[in-house]
Design a protein around this nucleic acid. Sequence first.
DNA 1: CATAACTCCGTAAGCACTTACGTTGATTCG
DNA 2: CGAATCAACGTAAGTGCTTACGGAGTTATG
Lengths: 145, 145
Amino acid sequence: MRRLSERIDREANAVYAARGIDFEQRWYGTLSLLDERGPLSVTEIARALNITHVAVSQARRSLTAAGLIASTLDPADGRRRTLHLTDAGAAFVARLWPLWDALNAVGDAINREAADPSAALDRLEGALDRMSLSERVERLLPRSI
Amino acid sequence: MRRLSERIDREANAVYAARGIDFEQRWYGTLSLLDERGPLSVTEIARALNITHVAVSQARRSLTAAGLIASTLDPADGRRRTLHLTDAGAAFVARLWPLWDALNAVGDAINREAADPSAALDRLEGALDRMSLSERVERLLPRSI
DNA sequence: CATAACTCCGTAAGCACTTACGTTGATTCG
DNA sequence: CGAATCAACGTAAGTGCTTACGGAGTTATG
């Protein structure tokens, strides 16, 4: 599973590289979200993407270094940093959308071709939600607690 | 996908921790293989597990530090290091088998419960083998080459 | 039989996340 | 209204892999 997800990352990277685009995978979520929904705080992005605020913060750092986004301190709440696309970032995203659309279309196509592995993963996640791994193991091989 | 695989890793870790066993996920492949098939070289293990020799080498380092395996230089071929379980390693593995069996059984059960996501992932991999991501994108959005 | 080509294995660094932990503001409440 | 709690965010370090690279030993070839 990890191997497969690494393979997909790698192949996606190759797509960008083949077109001479300097792009990091982890940029996608933040960039597309900022483009679609406007300025957002780090935590808002984290919640929308279902990752930790730390991952967003790291993406922020590299996106800022690349000059694609900038942040302003929220005047109403000194803890928050509101992230927004710079002009260069907006142009970059505009250039990338066709490629992202293509990638998403390819993802859908593969998903159909392979009989919906994505739904299968959702079911797996659901199974773990119903009963955790540890609980299942405990039930099969009681020992601790 | 990455998130889910990380979740599984985490839950599996919790299983070991709950039983007070000091265990690293990446040990599993090498330990179980050495126990089932006897002394093996780094590259042999890598091929059997379908990972890089580097990953095996890193596991080797940490397993050696933990005193669970040891290596001898192959007298016939000076490049090879043959890895084998130490006495402590063999005892550790013996103690762990029931847990591994339980984990595998739980994996099978979840797999059935969730309508075989594992097969779905194999199909996904197969689809990528038939045509790579870049090729699919190229076909949809010709640009480069 | 020297040299080119290949194989085994190691270290370093990167990737995209995570947890652990601390700092600085905002909010609540007695 | 001051103290305790909570929320937003940052850095450091870890995880389990990967690619890039290099050294040293083995095999093939002209």
